[in-house]
Design a protein around this nucleic acid. Structure first.
Length: 421
RNA sequence: GGAGAGAUGGAUGAGUGGUUUAAAUCAACGGUUUACUAAACCGUCGUCCCUUAAUUGGGACCGUGGGUUCAAAUCCCACUCUCUCCGCCA
């Protein structure tokens, strides 16, 4: 959500932002509703002032004028009530429009319609040249009894999976490694956050109302979050934060659930796109300052790159184009890791910053040096997502004989250097 | 699942229909005094919205949402959350 005053004064910026994001939004309609809202507000508040004035008069008046005043106030009340009803309706459409106002993308965001227009900004590592035909992760993992998709489908349905033996151990090894890496780095509060959460948390982070289709919902009206970001951000909902504690960095672990509505027929095989997975997510809150947001955005993206470099996985970073940005995102980097079995890069990380778009919705504020209340800035990035990251590991570390080498940094956690039958 | 109690500003806590524009105390901040510190004294001390040249004027907010009334923190209804006890339970 953006500040209505800002929207009023920067109508053209909003229009231009929506165009760049390929989101259709009618600013003029919002401003017309806002004019109505303000006019009603002024009128209602003037009537309430009169009411307050008469309230005092009535106490002091004699019986005769008292009856007269009460009569006058009865009349005023009918008009007031009518206007209040009207305002209620206006507020409904006002709020509906307000949560659909897209945040303005950064100048450095490239033009484009979808992910094919994203721009590569750097690559790291060498794409391995194998002297044998690369297998994909499904074949590799099933051969080594690390993965069971058939029983996954039997038990959990479409996109279901079991990780077993070294598949499970490799995941746990990665969790350990990641935790140790981030704790050594310092500054992050490790958290296990709820995935079964209330609507407010998802509305506040910007996943609702647009993402309704992609979310699982319970019979109690709660939702299953698609990312730990929602729970981690909602942690500070309706709070006034201590500015001296900034930046607040959270390393959130949670199960994640996605219906993948609209992705039917896409990545239908294997572990790339599943309904249920686990993710470590970096979530950051900082002071309301563009430069600070930008610096932290680079930092949390770098954190993810460090993990991949430690695992010696070739990757590239792309800056997402306007059409591939969410409603609230100002700028986004995706990290994509090489997958020899597919011969392509596959997205594993997504780092974005929002300015105060999320914190305004979640009401997360702090008192500035000069005593003014401000909405904090927020950012987030994947730390590591499972089982998706396993794809790149097993495919990059595969050997001609079908065995898989264990990345060196994981040896101590796995208790072995090679996965074989 | 059952029974009961409760929710007021940063904290404690008064307030059961109209001089409450939410008392008081503590904390915090500024000042006076002091060689310094403390004490004492004086002052400031919420958030949001509309409006204004303005720190101008007005309005809203006592868990949330409705209702009654000329007038609601106060009365009525629903809900949420917290606490205590019982039951069930990884």
């Amino acid at each position: 959500m953006l500040d209505i005053k800002f929207i009023r004064e920067n109508k053209d910026l909003i229009k231009e932002g929506a165009r760049k994001k390929h989101i259709s939004f009618d600013v003029d309609e919002l401003l017309a509703v806002d004019d109505k809202r303000r006019a009603l507000l002024v009128s209602i508040e003037a009537k309430r002032a009169t009411q307050n004035e008469y309230s005092e008069k009535i106490i002091k008046a004699d019986t005769e004028s008292k009856a007269k005043f009460v009569e006058e106030m009865k009349e005023l009340k009918t008009v007031l009530q009518k206007e209040e009803e009207e305002l209620k309706d206006v507020m409904k459409s006002w709020q509906m429009l307000m949560i659909h106002v897209p945040n303005i993308p950064d100048i450095s965001v490239p033009e484009g319609e979808s992910d094919v227009d994203n721009k590569e900004i750097r690559t790291w590592g060498e794409i391995p040249k194998l002297d044998f035909k690369a297998k994909d992760h499904i074949e590799l993992m099933e051969n080594l009894d690390m993965l069971d998709l058939e029983r996954g489908a039997k038990t959990a349905g479409f996109r279901g999976y079991f990780l077993k033996n070294d598949g499970a151990l490799l995941s746990f090894a990665l969790w350990h490694f990641l935790l140790e890496h981030f704790m050594k780095k310092g500054g992050f509060t490790p958290m296990m956050v709820p995935s079964l959460i209330k609507r407010d948390a998802l509305l506040g982070t910007g996943y609702l109302p647009q993402g309704e289709e992609d979310l699982y919902k319970t019979q109690d009206g709660d939702y299953l979050a698609g990312t730990g970001e929602a729970g981690a951000m909602a942690y500070h909902m309706d709070e006034t934060l201590d500015r001296t504690k900034f930046p607040i960095k959270i390393l959130a672990f949670s199960p994640c659930f996605r219906r993948e509505a609209g992705s039917h027929g896409k990545d239908v095989k294997g572990l790339y796109r599943v309904h249920e997975f686990f993710k470590f997510e970096q979530v950051v809150l900082c002071e309301a300052n563009h430069e600070t947001s930008v610096a932290l955005h680079e930092e949390i993206n770098r954190n993810a790159e460090e993990m991949l470099e430690a695992l010696k996985l070739p990757y590239r970073v792309v800056v997402n184009c306007g059409g591939d940005l969410g409603l609230g995102q100002v700028k986004k980097y995706d990290i994509e890791v090489w997958r020899p079995g597919h011969g392509t890069y596959g997205e594993t990380h997504s780092a974005s910053y929002f300015h105060d778009f999320q914190t305004r919705r979640l009401n997360i504020r702090y008192k500035d040096v000069d005593g003014k209340m401000k909405f904090a800035h927020s950012l987030n990035n994947t730390a590591l997502a499972f089982p998706r990251i396993l794809i790149s590991i097993v495919e990059n570390y595969q050997q001609a004989d079908g065995t898989i080498l264990v990345p060196e940094v994981l040896h101590s956690y796995m208790g072995k250097g090679v996965i074989k039958k």
